[in-house]
């Protein structure tokens, strides 16, 4: 299988980037997309050229490191997957594949396809945790949680922080990410004591980081590898108003 990669190359955060073209032969359909990039990098090494910098860790859709924009979509042509779950069989022989880094003012490019997503970490630091004494694990049934609540919390806890929501949003809004983190803890009894503070501080940090606001295009929930629903943003808005005006 042979494809033409058009890949964003950028030396460093301050440098000007550009799209470079690479003809790559010898690919197979069951290679993952990241393996195809590995293959390209091996060819570049042989030619003594700079390899393409891209991020990954687990390569099985759980770490959220591998986000790139492929042919105009976050994580490539399919809905609700990560880049590492994308395979070359999703493309045809002879295709041109354009690969770009996530674009958002709050996600500056570090090098090539790697962006700095530490803005997410700083949002997390504002309250995506519970303050509890650690020690021996507590008895699992000490706090009873209804199935519905547990499922709902689990749905949003699934967020892997990949940043696709920001990348695909025309406003570079981090609302889906922040909403997932807030709704996860605020819907559980363990999260209740700090619920108001959490929602206020985390949304405040989200604004401080320079992310845009949500206009409900709905692109984020389509690109989210975990399929987190956009309704969570409405729920975050409700929780925020409640915390701000009623408590």
């Amino acid at each position: 299988m042979k494809v033409t990669f058009k890949i964003w190359r950028q030396e460093g955060p301050k440098d000007k980037g550009e799209i470079k073209t690479y003809e790559v032969d010898g690919l197979t359909e069951d290679m993952s997309f990241l393996e195809a990039l590995d293959h390209l990098n091996e060819l570049l090494v042989l030619k003594n050229e700079n390899v393409i910098a891209f991020e990954y860790d687990c390569r099985e859709g759980i770490c959220g490191q591998c986000g790139v924009f492929i042919n105009g979509r976050a994580h490539g042509p399919h809905d609700n997957i990560t880049t590492c779950q994308l395979h070359m069989r999703s493309f045809n022989d002879g295709d041109t594949i354009v690969v770009e880094p996530w674009l958002a003012a709050s996600f500056p490019v570090i090098k090539d396809l790697i962006v700095d997503r530490s803005a997410f970490d700083r949002i997390i630091e504002q309250g995506a945790f519970i303050s509890a004494k650690t020690g021996t694990a507590a008895e699992a049934n000490a706090i009873l949680i209804g199935r519905e609540v547990a499922d709902k919390a689990m749905d949003v806890a699934a967020c892997i922080g990949c940043g696709a929501c920001v990348a695909t949003c025309k406003n570079a809004s981090a609302s889906l990410f922040t909403a997932a983190k807030i709704n996860h803890l605020n819907s559980l009894p363990q999260g209740k004591p700090e619920a108001s503070k959490r929602v206020l501080e985390m949304t405040k940090q989200m604004e401080l980081e320079g992310f845009g606001s949500c206009t409900f295009t709905g692109a984020c929930e389509v690109e989210c590898p975990e399929g987190i629903s956009i309704i969570n943003i409405a729920e975050m808005n409700a929780r925020r108003s409640k915390a701000k005006w009623l408590s």
């Binding site: 058009k6 964003w8 799209i19 924009f69 042919n71 105009g72 979509r73 042509p77 809905d79 354009v98 770009e100 674009l103 958002a104 003012a105 709050s106 695909t168 949003c169 025309k170 406003n171 570079a172 809004s173 320079g210 992310f211 845009g212 606001s213 206009t215 409900f216 295009t217 709905g218 692109a219 389509v222 690109e223």
Partner: peptide, 29 residues
């Protein structure tokens, strides 16, 4: 809000198939 959102996303993708994940209207309000 629009000005602020533009600032949050100053650069455009070379290719962006936003029509595959959202409505044209929502992208152009």
């Amino acid at each position: 809000i629009t000005l602020k959102n533009r600032k949050a996303k100053p650069q455009k993708y070379v290719i962006n198939k936003s029509n595959e994940n959202s409505s044209w209207t929502s992208q152009n309000m």
